[in-house]
Each structure stands twice: as C-alpha cells, then as structure tokens.
C-alpha cells in the first residue's frame, strides 16, 4: 500500500519541479500544472504518512530515513500555505526539486516503509522528533524566502528595465514572512529541544546536539537583528544560512545512522 502511494507522490513532486522550471521561462499553464503537482503530491504523501502511522507498531519517523520522509511532508506543507499563489512560484523552483529528491532518498533508504522505531508511548521522544522536524522544515522554507528577499533586494537596487515584469512578492511581504517563519521555527525548535534535554545526560553533548544549538542561535540572531537592530539584509542572509545548518544537521543524522 505504501509503495502505491510513494510513486504518485514522487511523480507529482517531480512533475511540479519540472513545471516550475517551465513556469520560470513561460508563465501561465506551467504554473498551474506545478500547483496541481504540489497539491496532488502532498495528498499522496499525506495518505502515505497515514498508512505508515496506522501500520507501524511504533513511531515510524524516528529513523533517519523516516524522519526525512516526514521532513519533506512538513516542508511541502509549509510551502503550500503560500506556494500556490503565482507570486511565490519562484520559491517552488527551489522547494519542489528538493522535496522530490529527498523523498526519493527517503524511499531508497526505507523511510517510507511501515517499520516502527520508537514506541508511540515514548511521548517525549515523539514530541522531540516531531518538533525538531517542524523547526527544520520551517528553517528550510524561511531560507527559501530569505533567498527570494535578497534576490528581490538585488533586483530593486540594480534597476533592470524589466523589473516590473517579474511577478515576485513584495520586499516587505518577503521580509515579514521570513521573520515570521523563523519565529515559528525557533519556537518549535525550542519546544523540541526541551524534551531532548531530558535525554542529554545519557546521550552527552555530541555534534548533532551542538549543531541543533547552533541552529537555535542562528534563529535567535535573525530575530534579534531584524526586530531589535533593524538589520534586515543581514537577518535575511543569516536566515539563508539556516538552510545550510539544516543540511549539515541532516547529513549529521545520516552519518550517525550509518555509523
């Protein structure tokens, strides 16, 4: 059953990724095809997660590959909030190829199967993983938004004649969304770290824990720079750095999994 849902999700995400590329050159029909790809893929992946949750004898996303599957779903969910609006389609060009690739990796590594990891009864661990993944997804989308913001800033500064033909969200909207998404992600990360602290004495301070704390510091710096210091561009650049931190953490999780 899970197998039957992975492929539609993968195909729809892949189709959306190609359609977004087409939309960048020729807006219109490609944009609508991309939007439907995202929606159908998200529905298929949601169904996949439901099937996994009902079939597994434990929390099915506590493994590295499983967490990647849930991470992709969270990123696409966050993107879906604004992504279907024409002005945010450029963000889809970054998000959907990433989603398709990561879901494919998760599938190849067995993350879409129903095998259980941690028991559902281990609420602390389930909360810890869930909230950390929500924050990772949020930081990833915030990074995409920050990239759009910096690009929009550059375009506005360089005065190209075709400036108004680019259908982009306004600079202020991107700024507000980036900061808002970082704020939500930071809150989720903080809430996710707290249950993890309970396990710290057993686990010790390893690279992953340190990386998570760095991500937290990065999120807090973005908020401080933007809200208190009024350094919008620097805050956006740091938010973009948040994506790099998430990638490093995901790779760290992979190495930990392989080890």
């Amino acid at each position: 059953m899970a197998e039957l849902l992975v492929w539609p999700a993968l195909l729809a995400y892949g189709e959306a990724a190609f359609a977004y590329a087409g939309n960048a050159r020729n807006p219109g029909l490609y944009g609508r095809l991309a939007t439907w790809g995202v929606r159908l893929g998200w529905l298929a992946q949601t169904a996949l997660l439901v099937v996994q949750a009902t079939r597994a004898d434990g929390f099915p996303w506590s493994t590295w590959a499983g967490s990647l599957n849930l991470f992709v779903w969270l990123v696409v969910s966050a993107y879906l909030i604004w992504g279907c609006s024409p002005r945010f389609r450029l963000l889809g060009l970054g998000v959907m190829p990433l989603a398709a690739a990561l879901l494919a990796i998760s599938y190849a590594a067995g993350g879409t199967e129903g095998a259980g990891g941690a028991a559902w009864g281990d609420v602390v661990l389930v909360l810890h993983i869930g909230l950390i993944l929500v924050s990772f997804a949020g930081f990833t989308v915030a990074g995409g938004l920050a990239a759009l913001e910096l690009w929009q800033e550059r375009v506005l500064k360089s005065h190209p004649a075709g400036l108004l033909r680019q259908r982009m969200p306004s600079l202020v909207a991107l700024d507000r969304l980036t900061v808002g998404t970082v704020g939500v992600s930071l809150a989720a990360l903080t809430a996710g770290i707290i249950p993890g602290l309970a396990r710290l004495p057993d686990r010790g301070l390893d690279v992953l824990v340190a990386g998570t704390l760095v991500l937290w510091a990065l999120g807090a710096s973005v908020l401080y720079l933007r809200v208190r210091a009024g350094r919008r561009e620097l805050a956006a650049a740091l938010a973009l750095g948040g994506v790099a931190a998430v990638i490093v953490l995901q790779l760290g999780l992979l190495f930990a999994h392989v080890a």
Binding site: L156, L163, L164, S170, L171
Partner: peptide, 17 residues
C-alpha cells in the same frame, strides 16, 4: 505601468506590496 507616474506607483508596490 504606461507612464512615469504609474511606474513609480508600481515600483512602490513592488517594494511594499
């Protein structure tokens, strides 16, 4: 926009929404 004045307004919308 089709005039300099309306281009200025469109630019403002590009910055502020």
């Amino acid at each position: 926009p089709a005039s300099v004045a309306s281009a200025a307004a469109a630019l403002a919308a590009q910055v502020f929404g």
